[in-house]
Simulated assay, not measured.
Amino acid sequence: MSYEIEVTLAENKKTKPNANELAFGTCFTDHMFMMDYTLEAGWHHPRIVPYAPISLDPAAVVFHYGQAVFEGMKAYRTKEDKILLFRPEKNMERLNLSNERLSIPPVDETFLVEAIKKLVSIEKDWVPADEGTSLYIRPFIIATEPYLGVRPAHTYTFIVILSPVGAYYAEGINPVSIYVENNYVRAVKGGTGHTKTSGNYAASFKAQEEAQKQGCAQVLWLDGVEKTYIEEVGSMNVFFKVNGEVWTPALNGSILAGVTRDSVIQLLEEWNIPVKEKRISIEELYAAYTEGTLEEAFGTGTAAVISPIGNLKWNDKNLVINGGESGSLSMKIYDTICGIQTGEKEDPFGWTVEAE
């Protein structure tokens, strides 16, 4: 791979939206990063170019066999006007785990962190400064070879696009109601549940629709074999505080290893709060609820950081957690991670990286 990034700047710049008008994933910056793969050249031609539609053959493998992976991360503007990325090396590490499972050639993780830093630096004026806002970073790889045979493609394109996003909680953090899904499954061990591949998300939409019919914001996924053990909540990892301990489902081959999940575990260990990665059955959780020891529940992910859970709807039961209010531990985690991301709190873990 050539490590020289070719840069072509846009001649006509877009009008930047006001921070109070930002939604999630609807507005995109002036430039994007691209890189190609062929069997002969490997990954090559890294470049930053004006944001524009891409042209693909209708027979491209990505359309027919879903060979695609992606990541999600953010850049933040500090009060000192620095631009910080949060643990980008972990995202590139996970991207290669997804690549391996989807038979996509591995990428150079160190180089791509530098490429993303360069792209964000070029687009630094797009990083909003208002509280709760950020620049969302979406790296992804698609199979581009025009071929209808069932095998891994021989050509790919890696792309990074950027989108300024508003505060995830426009009106403050409010606990959500969650529907425990008993029919549809998200993933099984040996499948693609531990990866960020497009098909995982398309397959979740039906259950999400059912949750909304039940008056809930998201789905609590159970394992795909016994439909007993808790795995994820929506597209987030999930945590429960039970009798002073924090439980989270152990990574088992069907659960995504979230960067925020890992960060929360490190924080809890730093605070000497007992944290267990374990198999958690929905019956065990219900028993803790009936005993009065289920104290808090929350999801973790890049978009929201922390999403408190106020109610679990399981069959004919409603498990109201912490009186339907956000828990103190959930809020402490949220404030700490957000503070580190924006440079307002000390970063003892070395999680943040400045875009140059």
Rank of each mutant, 00 (worst) to 15 (best):
S2N: 12
Y3T: 11
E4H: 09
T8D: 07
T8H: 06
K13N: 14
L22W: 04
F28K: 02
T29Q: 03
M32W: 02
Y37R: 03
L39Q: 13
P50C: 11
Y51E: 04
S55R: 14
P58F: 10
A60P: 05
V62E: 13
H64P: 12
G66V: 04
K82S: 10
L85I: 09
F86I: 15
K90C: 11
K90D: 08
E93C: 06
R94V: 11
L95I: 12
S98G: 08
R101T: 09
P105I: 04
P106I: 08
V107N: 00
T110L: 09
F111D: 05
F111W: 14
L112A: 11
K117I: 08
K118I: 04
V120H: 07
W126E: 06
E131M: 15
L135K: 08
Y136I: 14
I137N: 02
F140D: 01
I142V: 14
G149S: 12
V150P: 01
T157S: 12
F158W: 03
I159V: 15
I159W: 07
Y168E: 04
V176Y: 07
E181P: 06
N183K: 13
V185K: 14
A187R: 00
T192C: 11
G193F: 01
K196R: 13
T197R: 07
N200P: 05
A202F: 12
A202C: 10
F205T: 12
A207D: 06
Q212S: 15
K213S: 15
Q214Y: 05
C216M: 05
Q218K: 08
Q218N: 09
V219H: 13
V219S: 02
L220S: 03
D223A: 13
V225H: 04
T228L: 03
Y229G: 03
G234Y: 05
S235H: 07
N237T: 05
F239K: 01
F239I: 01
K241D: 00
V242R: 00
G244W: 00
E245T: 00
A250C: 00
D262H: 14
S263C: 08
V264Y: 00
V264L: 15
E269Q: 15
W271Q: 14
R279Q: 07
R279H: 12
I280Q: 04
I280R: 00
E284Q: 09
Y286P: 00
Y289V: 07
L294P: 01
G299R: 03
G301C: 06
T302E: 03
V305C: 10
I306R: 07
S307E: 09
D316M: 04
K317S: 12
K317E: 14
K317T: 14
N318K: 15
G323P: 13
G323L: 10
G327I: 05
I333T: 11
G339R: 10
D347L: 09
P348F: 06
V353M: 06
E354D: 02
E354N: 05
